[in-house]
């Protein structure tokens, strides 16, 4: 596996976690837990952003690894 595809895999699983956390936050009624979940979802999304930027650079430098 190339580096790009590995990074893509991690990115996909992070996106999965972020949406799972979002679902939990939607259901959770306890304010403290809700805040905890929302805050941490934001942090995971921040990491997702880093990854997406990095992937864009990778694909620009090595276009042969573009796409899935």
């Amino acid at each position: 596996m190339t580096v790009a595809s590995e990074v893509k895999q991690t990115l996909a699983s992070l996106k999965g976690v972020a949406s799972t956390l979002e679902t939990f936050a939607l259901h959770e009624e306890n304010e403290e837990s809700n805040e905890l979940l929302t805050r941490n979802t934001q942090r995971v999304k921040e990491v997702i952003d880093y990854f997406e930027k990095r992937l864009a650079t990778m694909e620009f430098e090595e276009p042969e690894y573009k796409g899935f």
């Binding site: 590995e6 991690t10 699983s13 999965g16 976690v17 995971v44």
Partner: peptide, 23 residues
Amino acid sequence: KTKELAYVTLRKAQSDCEAYALA
């Protein structure tokens, strides 16, 4: 298992990041 799965995935992603940082 959704909760456990989310936790394990987070841990996995974290160690992946560490590996990328090293490489």
